[in-house]
């Protein structure tokens, strides 16, 4: 039998990454209820305690826009033109559903953990 040995730190890192992967979309939809642009969103997420990679977020913004969850608009008034995104009505509705699911999931996990929900 092959036993793969992973350092505890590495193991934690990979599982954390797995856990966070599913929440990036939700985080973007929530954060962009206030209009924001690519780099600004990265900073917002980082400040909120959800650090994400630029190479994940930038393509994701376009995909979410294609699916109608975000709307976008170029702002060329300032010295540097930026593409601003905002969560659409569909996106907001989806985010509301997802965050309810997230809370349910969290409650279920805490129940499994034998404790009360936080």
């Amino acid at each position: 039998m092959i036993v793969t040995t992973m350092e505890p730190q590495e193991l934690l890192g990979s599982h954390r990454q797995e856990l966070r992967r599913g929440t990036v979309v939700l985080a973007c939809l929530l954060a962009l209820r206030e209009t924001g642009y690519g780099y600004g969103l990265l900073k917002t997420l980082e400040t909120a305690g959800i650090p994400s990679d630029a190479n994940t977020i930038y393509p994701l913004l376009r995909r979410l826009e294609e699916r109608g969850l975000l709307t976008s608009e170029w702002n060329t008034d300032e010295s540097r033109p930026r593409k601003f995104y905002r969560t659409s009505a569909t996106g907001s509705a989806l985010a509301a559903q997802l965050i309810t699911d997230m809370d349910d999931l969290s409650a279920s996990l805490h129940a499994l953990n034998g404790g009360t929900t936080r």
Binding site: Y37, G38, Y39, A54, Y58, W74, R80, P81, R82, K83
Partner: peptide, 9 residues
């Protein structure tokens, strides 16, 4: 255009 502005930021 978007990548340029993100990189510059």
């Amino acid at each position: 255009r978007e990548l340029r502005s993100s990189l510059a930021d």
